[in-house]
């Protein structure tokens, strides 16, 4: 776990739970002793962004980099010059939380020179319950679009198939099957299987990919 390259890009469909995974991943990375920064590159959707947890992250010594405009409701795509920090200061282990579609991924395109200079890992978070990524063709098309928008290549898959609090083992296994199909078709490894920590004991063994237990941090306002 956490053996990815220094720059980790996390991408996936809107509502796939990629930010929840990014948050858990970032916390885990910091807990494992890495000097960690999370970059919120989501310029499209102003809700459920990792920057909402800024004070919580900072308490844990994690650097949060987001818009140059303070104020959560702002949805100007104002990328902060601070983002360049993670490319230049190689003491950081960085998690880049990228917008959930081709449009969102475009914001990453402008950093392609930095990413060309240094190998990175780009994890595609797949939730088989999202309409655009519920089958093999849809998932592949989505991955290709994000790659075109961001000018980067996905390097691994993360199975994050869930239905929030109503997730069953069957849901996860259905997502795992889709991930395996995508994995075979594109030659990409399944890196993690994201599972709420309460469900981990019920999960079958010998699945492709490492089990990544998570807590829920991205609270919805109606919860």
């Amino acid at each position: 776990m956490f053996d990815e390259k220094r720059i980790r890009i996390i991408t996936g469909h809107y509502g796939s739970g990629k930010t929840e995974f990014a948050v858990n991943y970032t916390l885990g990375l910091a807990a494992a002793g890495y000097k960690t920064a999370i970059v919120d590159l989501d310029i499209v959707n102003p809700y459920f962004r990792s920057r909402e947890l800024e004070p919580f992250f900072e308490e844990k010594g994690i650097r949060v980099i987001s818009s140059s405009i303070k104020g959560l409701a702002g949805d100007l795509p104002a990328l902060s010059p601070e983002i360049n920090t993670v490319f230049h200061d190689k003491s950081y282990s960085a998690v880049l939380d990228v917008g959930g579609d081709k449009v969102g991924a475009t914001a990453l395109g402008r950093y392609h020179e930095s990413l060309d200079r240094e190998p990175y890992d780009m994890m595609f978070v797949l939730n088989a319950n999202r309409s655009m990524t519920h089958d093999l063709d849809g998932a592949i098309r989505y991955i290709r679009e994000i790659e075109a928008g961001s000018r980067q290549k996905v390097t691994s898959l993360v199975n994050n198939t869930h239905l929030c609090g109503e997730t069953t083992i069957e849901d996860i296994m259905r997502g795992q099957k889709l991930c395996e199909q995508v994995s075979d078709a594109l030659g990409l490894p399944i890196k993690y299987i994201v599972v709420h920590k309460d469900l981990v004991p019920s999960l079958p063994h010998n699945l492709k990919g490492e089990v990544f237990p998570i807590d829920i941090y991205m609270k919805k306002p109606w919860e």
């Binding site: 405009i69 104020g71 702002g74």
Partner: peptide, 11 residues
């Protein structure tokens, strides 16, 4: 002179 309150609390 403006009417833009970007911070939800200020708004």
């Amino acid at each position: 002179i403006n009417s833009l309150f970007i911070d939800p609390q200020e708004c």
